[in-house]
Nucleic acid binder design. Structure first.
Lengths: 116, 116
DNA sequence: TCAATACTAAACCCAATGGTTCAGTATTCA
DNA sequence: TGAATACTGAACCATTGGGTTTAGTATTGA
């Protein structure tokens, strides 16, 4: 079987949280400080930081500190492994359908053969 | 912003678990009973059942009971919403790069203008 | 220098998750 | 009928996850 990048788990988990997806959406519109990220959620700074750290951990966010403010921006990860997994699943799903169809057609033929 | 199907959260969470992804991989090769699914994981039946229920909840698995055995097979969900979200993210990511590039080019032009 | 700002570290809280065991129930088969 | 099979429901348990508060530390600006 295909051996996916071992952090697919972490990436999927990171992205499964709606708050984190909103953070990503915000950062797609441009960089932001932790405070700026926190504001629309009325969530504590430490709360936001936890999410940011998780996103940073899987490369979806990059941060660096300028003086006392930490700037957050989108990181280099583009979810390639997620996309690959989804497409792989889809392919297998379709192959399963093909096999099922073939099986049914086969049965039908046999039934017809028996009836002759 | 795009309003994703409200169960994107649940689908992503379902699929973030490696055991559940393995179950899906197994079912892609054909239907199986709960016991058959449990075997390769040396996990208790109730344990497997919990995973199956979760996958069933998001449409990735379908089950029905024949006598005392419950047959599990892949369900109709093909992760369309996940794929859509990933592609959306990728688009925004690229747009961000474009903007950054434009910004940098602009700055460069201005600097050149000043230097003249 | 001193107050205000912007984060951060640590400790804690509670609910959800991923697993278990144990005791049924329903089916099958001899 | 009676034993074995295949699940299922309930209760439980440990860990993690998402959040908080509280008390710092480092930077900035007046």
């Amino acid at each position: 079987m295909v051996q996916y990048s071992s952090n697919l788990d972490h990436t999927l988990a990171a992205v499964a949280d709606p708050t984190r997806r909103e953070i990503l959406e915000r950062l797609a519109r441009g960089p932001a400080s932790v405070s700026e990220l926190a504001e629309p959620f009325q969530m504590s700074l430490p709360g936001v930081m936890k999410h940011v750290r998780i996103l940073e951990g899987v490369g979806l966010v990059e941060t660096h500190k300028n003086g006392r403010v930490r700037e957050c921006r989108l990181g280099p990860a583009r979810l390639d492994d997620v996309q690959r997994w989804v497409e792989d699943y889809r392919r297998q799903w379709e192959r399963r359908l093909d096999r099922l169809e073939a099986f049914l057609r086969n049965q039908q033929d046999e039934a017809a053969g028996t009836a002759e």
